[in-house]
């Protein structure tokens, strides 16, 4: 049968759900081994964080999409958590191979890393379901439906109070970690990346400015480029 936008969307959703059926809603044995290898076991903090973020996500999703869609929010979050575990495991395997270490205590106890990774997983889930597009983008098929456009990127950053600059850090590793991501998903993440690089990371409250200041004070003084260049 001919490909239609709806058929394409259904295929993407089926593919995502199919890929995640085998990934459990709990950390796998391999992931648990990484947690146990840490100097400080991150498991309890991670689970508590997930509960807090689930409440935040469900509440804000309900406000944006409507109270009758609360169950949808819970389903999206559950799928996002499966993807979060799957990608985390792939990232750690790749880091173990690259660095020849098995103790990722610092990374796995970094709340910003977990929040960014989960936000990216949820962005992928919502983009697949067509709920997150871009208000100014050219491919928002839900344009005109304010309920759906309310959860478009960077909505997730506001929900988790996450700096765009920190979300940006996980995008490339996320794409590398999952070669089964659809082309549309990769394209969506790339558009998020470009939006951050071109606009969101440069807003006044961005942590980027403090980092640039620290870099400058740390001795890495370079000639400031002229406005023309």
């Amino acid at each position: 049968p001919p490909q239609t936008p709806i058929r394409a969307a259904m295929t993407s959703i089926q593919q995502l759900r199919g890929d995640l059926i085998s990934s459990g809603d709990q950390p796998s044995t391999t992931l648990n081994t990484y947690f146990k290898n840490c100097t400080v076991d991150p498991t309890q903090n991670m689970l508590t964080r997930l509960e807090t973020l689930e409440q935040l996500f469900s509440q804000r999703f309900g406000q944006a999409v409507g109270p009758r869609c609360l169950i949808l929010g819970k389903q999206r979050f559950a799928l996002g958590v499966r993807l979060y575990y799957k990608i985390m495991e792939a990232m750690l395997k790749s880091e173990e191979k690259r660095l020849s270490v098995q103790n990722f205590s610092k990374l796995l106890n970094d709340a910003t890393f977990h929040t960014s990774l989960l936000a990216c997983a949820l962005e992928v889930v919502m983009a697949t379901y067509g709920e997150s597009s871009f208000k100014t983008g050219g491919y928002n098929h839900a344009a005109g439906d304010s309920a759906e456009t309310d959860v478009c990127f960077p909505w997730i950053l506001h929900v988790f109070n996450l700096a765009a600059f920190d979300f940006y850090k996980v995008i490339e590793s996320f794409i590398k970690a999952d070669p089964t991501l659809s082309k549309d998903t990769v394209k969506h993440l790339e558009t998020c990346e470009n939006l951050i690089m071109e606009r969101i990371a440069w807003r006044t409250d961005s942590p980027l400015f403090e980092l640039l200041k620290q870099e400058h004070e740390g001795g890495a003084v370079e000639q400031v480029e002229t406005p023309a260049s």
């Binding site: 990232m91 790749s94 880091e95 690259r98 660095l99 990722f104 610092k106 990374l107 970094d110 910003t112 890393f113 850090k169 996980v170 490339e172 590793s173 794409i175 590398k176 082309k183 549309d184 990769v186 394209k187 993440l189 790339e190």
Partner: peptide, 21 residues
């Protein structure tokens, strides 16, 4: 034919990006 442009060098990964090394 959409291909993501990978910008990270081979010696960079998520650990470095979150200042873990």
């Amino acid at each position: 034919n959409h291909n993501y442009h990978f910008g990270l060098e081979d010696h960079e990964g998520i650990s470095e990006l979150f200042d873990c090394d």
